[in-house]
Amino acid sequence: MFAPFALLLAAGACSVPSIVRVSRDDHFALRASEPLRIAVLPLRDAVPAPSLFFYLGRPFVWAARAVTLDFRGSMPTTESAADTMRSLLSARLVGESTEIVDHVQLDCALRSRTCDGTAASFATLAQELDVDAVIEGELHGLGAGWAVVRTNRELAGVVRLRDGMTGAVLFSADVAIGNGAGIDHGPTGWVSLVATPLAALDSGPYTEMAIDWAEVVGRELLGTSVLAGANGEPVVANVVVTAPERRLGAGDDIEVAADGSPGASVHFHLGSLHRQIPMFAAETLDDGRVRYRGVYRVRVGDRAAEAPIAVHLLWPGGGEAAQSASRLVDVFALPSPPR
């Protein structure tokens, strides 16, 4: 008697999966040492036009929305969805290893330029825009498919990062975010069994799906995410700061050591004065963790009051852990005023 219920519960626990296809040039890596100036071009609309059934079914969908009191926003247009995805992706990609060209500037510059979609034309465009790379792509899935007792929503887009010199594709990500409604989410009655999937054809959390899409693309391209690593990996601990026990001046060294997961990229922040000072693997500990060390030599021009030292460990593929030292440091090395 409980078997069907258990089956539905198990199915309900599985949300509609996201599909991620990524390819990356063997020699490509985003490096803070050689930051890329990137123009994120508008996403093209490659969503197939709706069929006749889409329009014929409208009255039933509206009726179902009324029955289920589903008053959420309707499905966005492809134009607005592509625009939202572009904005979210640009915001997601901001970082120390990238510079994202302002959209308003970019759109002004694009008015007088054309691009025929070939690698050479993207290279020409990049050189005209004075950028190191361009991101282009298209929205190719936006909508919902009805399967009587279940509706699958989808938002899918592909982006390609192209080298500004040659136009070659250095990285591409084709990401589809799924979301569903219907029988496997546990209808509570006969009415909701029928009406909920129908209502879902015209409504849904498309903005949230666009946010998830940008997060996935950003994680794949940058390799970092504040979301990954929430399940306990990776770890960083035992942050120790070695520096003279006084206010630090020009020439003083601040040495930072921390133990963490092996194979990670590790850096520390010196308060808000300097970000992402690199640390290197110095030794492997008995428990398999690695001791990372980094050093910063104070120079004229530096000043920080009671600055915390925060170590960040980035796991390849997205995990991140952070730990601050108990000690705060004072730095005061401003240039002497001219006499």
Partner: peptide, 22 residues
């Protein structure tokens, strides 16, 4: 930074337009 490294070291602006670091 060293070429090919992922990270980079910050330099300090000791006078306008002159940045130094170790």
């Amino acid at each position: 930074s060293l070429p090919g490294c992922l990270g980079r070291y910050p330099l300090s602006e000791e006078s306008p337009g002159r940045y130094v670091g170790t």
